[in-house]
Nucleic acid binder design. Sequence first.
DNA 1: CGTTTCTTTGACGGAACTCAACTACAGTGG
DNA 2: CCACTGTAGTTGAGTTCCGTCAAAGAAACG
Lengths: 219, 219
Amino acid sequence: MPALELEQLLMSGSVRQIYTGQKVFRQGQRAEEFFLLIHGRLKVTQTTAEGRHILVRVVHPGELFGFAPALQRHDYPGTSVAAARSLILCWPNAVWTSMIETNARLATNAMKAIGQRLQEAHARIRELSTENVERRLAHAILRLAEQTGQDDGNGIRLDLIFTRLDLAALTSTTQHSVSRLLSAWESQGIVEGGRQKLRVLDKARLQALADGRSWDSSD
Amino acid sequence: MPALELEQLLMSGSVRQIYTGQKVFRQGQRAEEFFLLIHGRLKVTQTTAEGRHILVRVVHPGELFGFAPALQRHDYPGTSVAAARSLILCWPNAVWTSMIETNARLATNAMKAIGQRLQEAHARIRELSTENVERRLAHAILRLAEQTGQDDGNGIRLDLIFTRLDLAALTSTTQHSVSRLLSAWESQGIVEGGRQKLRVLDKARLQALADGRSWDSSD
DNA sequence: CGTTTCTTTGACGGAACTCAACTACAGTGG
DNA sequence: CCACTGTAGTTGAGTTCCGTCAAAGAAACG
């Protein structure tokens, strides 16, 4: 995409800083803007009528979020809160249509982004349908490790923004099950836990768990 | 959308007839075309490495499917089979990009379509995460009733294309659980079953089950 | 140093899956 | 028209995963 156009585009939005724990928008709130995460980390959550929470997705830098206009919605389907101090770019909804109508490349990109999201959602449905809690948790942690982990020679450190409760909401289980599994893994030397911290020590073994193979050394 | 352009667009695709049980494309197959369902009904399924099946979605007339290019994939993530004799329109992948680049309205529409799909996926994740089998099945049947049911005065008839196994794959459970629940509902006069048939007799009561309210007559 | 938030652990129960027959229906060919 | 075969559906018994309930421990925070 031409640097000039891109720059123009970015400039047309307004920057906003979000502190940890602060919400960008709330579920049900009228959608008047859409956003791009520049720096930091966000969680998007949903609450059901019965009051149960699920973590819809984690937003990483460079990703669009709250793009209600593209989905022809007038309210936000979830709540987004900053899991770390973050920097976002905002545009009023009206810009969206003109943006993609004048810039085909952008339309294609936006579509790919949403398509990406759709595939992730399907993957999650597949996991929920066919895998037990242990495998799902293993998958989730591996994914987080890929996306946010710092490899410091002695395992992959996850600066968890995430509590056990978040991990539970991410894998559709309870904090209790998460805690039990992590404890079990810790005693096997697969991970090392802490309060809002986690370190993956044996990625291969975790991968084996995620794949549903019980650990055999033929790997 | 201008009728002329639309017509031109539709004309540029090629029509194909698909018999019940025939597959349009298979999971993993190289994606060279994308499709629009004109008439009939399709199921899109996925099979996991372990051989478990899930029913990803049901395609209704007027919907796009197999739009791998939009998701920047080169293979189809699932298999689509005709659940009834169907008529589809196909375009080679290459057309996609040019189509949306020359027609902004179309791009917006395609995006909305995919966005719609994304919301459905999220709804399903929410159901899987928070609802028990009974509620999920009730929801699924209500949805099917909306989309494909024939109201003939004496309840809503679902010309099921769907076996209990399909319903199980749709709600992520087993044929056994589906069968048990339908039997129970039948004995309460909520539905009426048959081989590949189903009739919803008491929609309100089914809705109550879907909403997790046990039946009280205050409705 | 008390309070809050996060985490761990145990005991228990229940929803739903698995295993295993068995029944019913539809279509086919004799 | 009826026996035969395969697919679809039903039903029961046993088991297990995991969520709920209950309580206590540990880290952060003012």
